[in-house]
């Protein structure tokens, strides 16, 4: 593999990794606060892509506006899922929430199959995404450049919200001690709603960008990206937001580089990622940035 190919694959890997990062943050935020894996998160990603699709194709809304609407709508869907499905089992053992999440995921996927059909739909990505750039011997598509750029902007906004605002401060205190936060006069349910809104908005953005990159959307499109983003969250350290970002890029790079280095393995690209998941769970279950969980008394 020469330098040019390596550089090209590096960009491809970063581009794919940034999508995983966007999705991984939702897993890690919900885990950090509620200590369960929101399996429906991968379906939120799909809802984001479909919402944008419908705004563009049916309502003929211009692309940037359609993306913005879709992100807002999906955030609302995320909040609704929490209200309807997770809040009632908030005080139940965590395993109940986990099983509920599996159920919600299955429900959304099947609702998608019934309503929009299993046949994939072609997603119209905007002009600037499909342009091709040539830098010396390296050929880069607009998507490969725009996706990481937009991701970085979104991640910066998200970091600002979490580390610099009142709501972010409440999110961090809820993730440390939910009961103590309540006793400081904070309406914890509201904080959790905002967490779902933020995580779902990022997942929607990820879904839309994913659809620009792989312009075929289907109700099950979220399943594999979801599992890989979950792997990314585990690798980075579940519960840690910077960890989810780092994990996302690592997983994206591993996936792309595996195929680039030995094309014979391309059929195993998903398998390799899950191997990483298994290895991390065995060797370092707290991930790169995760801390050992202290059980609270």
């Amino acid at each position: 593999m020469n330098a040019a190919v390596f550089f090209q694959q590096l960009i491809n890997g970063m581009s794919l990794g940034s999508l995983y990062a966007l999705l991984a943050i939702g897993y890690t935020m919900v885990y950090g606060i509620l200590r369960f894996i929101n399996f429906a998160h991968s379906d939120i990603f799909m809802v984001g892509a479909y919402s944008a699709f419908f705004f563009i194709v049916i309502f003929r809304v211009p692309w940037p506006l359609a993306a913005a609407f879709a992100v807002c709508l999906t955030a609302l869907v995320g909040v609704t899922i929490d209200r309807v499905a997770y809040r009632p089992v908030r005080d139940a053992p965590r395993i109940s929430a986990l099983i509920t999440a599996v159920g919600v995921s299955s429900f959304i996927e099947n609702l998608g199959l019934v309503t929009v059909g299993a046949r994939p739909k072609a997603f119209e990505s905007p002009q600037f995404m499909s342009r091709v750039f040539h830098i010396g011997p390296v050929t880069i598509t607009g998507v490969a450049i725009w996706v990481p750029i937009m991701t970085f902007v979104l991640l910066a906004v998200m970091m600002y919200v979490v580390y610099r605002t009142k709501i972010g401060m409440a999110m961090r205190s809820v993730s440390t001690d939910i009961e103590a936060t309540r006793l400081m006069g904070v309406d914890v349910d509201k904080v959790i709603s905002y967490t779902f809104a933020l995580g779902s908005a990022l997942a929607a953005a990820g879904g839309i960008l994913w659809a620009c990159k792989y312009p075929k959307i289907s109700p099950l499109m979220g399943v594999y990206p979801g599992w890989k983003a979950f792997t990314a969250a585990v690798v980075g350290g579940i519960g840690s937001i910077p960890g989810a970002m780092i994990g996302g890029f690592i997983i994206g790079l591993i996936e792309v580089m595996t195929v680039a280095i030995s094309p014979g393995l391309s059929g195993y690209r998903d398998g390799v990622i899950f191997l990483v998941l298994v290895v991390f769970l065995l060797v370092r279950p707290t991930g790169i940035l995760g801390e050992t969980l202290k059980e609270k008394v």
Partner: peptide
């Protein structure tokens, strides 16, 4: 057993509580 928000700064600990106002 105190239950401070250990990862937050001292000021942020106080602010979380103040924010309810």
């Amino acid at each position: 057993n105190m239950r401070l928000f250990e990862g937050l700064t001292v000021l942020d600990n106080v602010l979380v509580s103040r924010h309810s106002k």
